[in-house]
Nucleic acid binder design. Structure first.
Lengths: 128, 128
DNA sequence: CTTGATCCTGTAGTCACTACAGGATGCATA
DNA sequence: TATGCATCCTGTAGTGACTACAGGATCAAG
């Protein structure tokens, strides 16, 4: 049973963010000590760590919440987890494709942008 | 000399966003007709289009603003433009690298996540 | 008893829009 | 002239996922 600062250290979620998750009901509110301070069990720290791992993998808060409740459900429904995971994987791949297109466009624009030339290719492309 | 709706159509920037750009001084405020409505010249539509192109390339509003003022300055400073462009290109490449790492992690997690198995590999990795 | 760390609530700011509410005006048709 | 719909106006609030205080209470160590 630890205080919020230690829970932050153990979970890798900042104090402010922990309180935010509580406010937004991403995780259940922990019980309070007599002095009104939050008290965390290992299980609750585990939830915070779970959410942080989801966020690190790029899942949204609501996806993370869904995965957490699947993780805590009676029947661990692997199929649903996989569905959420592959949907997100697809989204990540789309994002990569978009950024790769951007990269190519920026490469071309900046390559043609030589200091000293009369006109700036990049500005011209943007203004066209 | 056109109204905001037509300016939106010609520039590809929505009416609400045009007003937002004006409020945030991304572009100068256009003059008003006698009835109080905004009136846009080709030059002003051009500025909106310029900002949109910058945004499409992933530049932030403040970068776009900077590029616009470089574009309208007396001495078209190609070196500065190139600097902003290559800095952004680097940022895009970093983002791609991050997402590619995410992609690999998600591939592994979802591949090991088979419906029907006793435990869910993905949930276990998240909860560990 | 003091000092510094930690905790609390509540609010506002970030970025780049987006979505109204509630009202005024313009334009075309009956 | 009346109607009705499109377009415009201002102002405010919401989005996601935090982050950053302000202003105050409490704790633990010396």
């Amino acid at each position: 049973m630890i205080a919020i600062g230690e829970a932050a250290r153990q979970s890798g979620v900042s104090i402010e963010t922990i309180r935010y998750y509580e406010r937004e009901r991403v995780v259940p509110a922990p019980r309070r000590a007599a002095n009104g301070r939050r008290v965390y069990s290992d299980k609750e720290v585990g939830r915070l760590r779970f959410i942080r791992r989801c966020r690190d993998l790029g899942f949204s808060i609501s996806e993370a919440k869904g995965l957490l409740s699947l993780s805590e459900g009676e029947n661990s429904n692997c199929a649903k987890v996989k569905e959420i995971g592959t949907a997100h994987l697809n989204a990540v791949r789309c994002k990569i494709a978009e950024l790769t297109a951007l990269e190519a466009a920026l490469e071309e624009l900046t390559a043609n942008c030589r200091s000293g030339s009369v006109s700036c290719q990049m500005l011209e492309a943007l203004a066209r």
